[in-house]
């Protein structure tokens, strides 16, 4: 079935609310999933994989581990990037605002691919960003210029399996500067796959034109989560609607 962006966003907000997310978190999380799906990065399939975990875990945000001149380290507490991602990006941006560039390492965090929308949001406010993580012998890199609407996504083959569940975020106002910093400290393998801004824009336009394809099973699952924020209807409650 196909749903509209507004419809999917509204449903996701309520579903995340049903999972116990706070107001800001459910707004951010819905935006992250929708952005990723509409731009061809598989937001809904990642959500589908994450839902059982989200439904059986407490809603934990990131916790500060260390804060030095060079970088901030956060502990994602084995939670999802849906709950920790915006915190990490905002912290990196604030650091860049003070020092010229920011570097945040978010450890113990899942669903990292969904971070894209956070980067785009920060880019809209004038930051250039690079995000990098490793998973299953692949390195994943997202980079975006300040003011850009879409990032560039690249995958690299790695000789060894990457470090566990970490996400690195670099921020400055100049993408070339942080690319330089990033390359200096990271060993990238052979590029295996990439999605450019043009392909993301095309995917977005198509989703806007035709609607977003969602499997009925996931839509039903979201409906069930939405039901958690609804209140039983009674004669008394109907009076509260104007009867």
């Amino acid at each position: 079935m196909r749903v509209s962006r507004n419809e999917l966003t509204a449903s996701l907000k309520k579903a995340f609310e049903g999972l116990g997310f706070s107001v800001g978190d459910y707004q951010d999380a819905a935006a992250m999933v929708v952005w990723s799906e509409m731009h061809g990065l598989g937001g809904l399939s990642q959500l589908q994989r994450a839902l059982p975990f989200l439904d059986n875990s407490p809603c934990l945000n990131a916790k500060l581990i260390s804060n030095t001149e060079q970088q901030v380290v956060l502990d994602g507490q084995n939670s999802s990037v849906l709950l920790c991602g915006t915190q990490a990006v905002r912290l990196a941006c604030a650091m860049a605002g003070e020092k010229g560039n920011g570097r945040v390492q978010l450890d113990n965090c899942h669903n990292r691919q969904l971070i894209s929308q956070c980067l785009v949001g920060a880019a809209q406010l004038g930051s250039a960003l690079v995000a990098y993580w490793q998973q299953d012998n692949l390195g994943h890199k997202l980079s975006i210029e300040a003011g850009a609407q879409q990032p560039e996504y690249r995958q690299y083959s790695l000789a060894n399996s990457g470090c566990a569940q970490s996400l690195l975020i670099f921020v400055s106002t100049d993408l070339a500067e942080i690319e330089h910093q990033f390359i200096a400290e990271t060993t990238l393998g052979v590029e295996a796959h990439s999605v450019g801004p043009e392909a993301m824009l095309e995917s977005y336009n198509q989703a806007l034109e035709l609607g977003i394809e969602i499997v009925a099973e996931l839509w039903h699952e979201l409906d069930n989560l939405v039901a958690r924020v609804l209140v039983e209807s009674t004669e008394s409650s109907r009076a509260g609607a104007g009867d």
């Binding site: 107001v23 800001g24 978190d25 916790k63 500060l64 915190q87 905002r90 941006c93 604030a94």
Partner: peptide, 18 residues
Amino acid sequence: QNVAHFILSNPAQSGIVS
């Protein structure tokens, strides 16, 4: 301190702060 650190300590406030 800045707002990013406030939100880190009080994550439930991010919506109203925005």
